[in-house]
Amino acid sequence: MNVKTPKIGAGRPWRIRFGGHPRVLYAGLSITAFWFVLALGADFIAPFDPNAQDIANVLHPPSLAHWLGTDNFGRDVLSRVIHGTRIDLQMGLIGVFLPFILGTVIGALSGYFGRFVDVVLMRVLDVMLSFPWLVLLIAIITVLRPGLGSFFIAITLVGWVSYARLVRAQTLVLKSSEFVQAAVNLGYSHLRILFRHILPNAMVPSIVFSMSDVVLVILAGSAISYLGLGVQPPTAEWGVMIAEGQNFMMTAWWISAFPGISIVFLAFGFSLLADGLGEKLGVQA
């Protein structure tokens, strides 16, 4: 018969044991922890007010007073980068959390109850996947008017697809496994079986994927802000800062350079986290 057994030890993502040499995982954790500290303590760590203008010190190259230089309004680039961490990290986390929840619920219901719901879902997935997602994101934000709130709505409408697909596939496999059969025979309700027994096991691949998705969402969010459709100036956000610096790239390279390096470094942390977690849980991200 075609009964597939779930991978032993693949479940319970909340009980990761740190054995062996999860160097990649540790490196990823340290880098992301660094950014979390920076975001939470921005007010104490940043040497200047991110929006304080200093007309006497405009377009200063990196120096001892201003480690990363100043921009065209004399604002301290280092302080703006540190404060930008808050927005970009928040963008990445919320922008993954909302699609994660929506996609997981839809994927689980569709995989568990199947039939008509599943047929419709599969067709919707086909259509959604054929849109270039950044372009669809831009089109939805256009309708909603530019802004951070619109970005979150749009990323939810576009991003749930990947999670629905992953969870649906896992649910289909787990549905026919023995422990689910046991739960059925015990007379548990459908919702209890689905949310207490199947979902905790079905979520493992999506948790690993969500880490690399943070990278994609931060890149998309900063790109949207760069285009002027997301976070609006004068808020210190990395994409906005890069866009502002582009006007002065002939003379002041540091305005655009450092926010970009921050994006790369933050994304690197989450990529490592995804790789390390995937290795740990036996899932290919």
């Binding site: 760069y226 994409g239 790239m249 970009g260 933050l266 690197f268 990529s271």
Partner: peptide
């Protein structure tokens, strides 16, 4: 792996 996180627009400007 580092390259995965390169924002294309920033790379272009650099």
């Amino acid at each position: 792996t580092v390259g995965l996180g390169f924002p294309a627009f920033w790379l272009g400007i650099m």
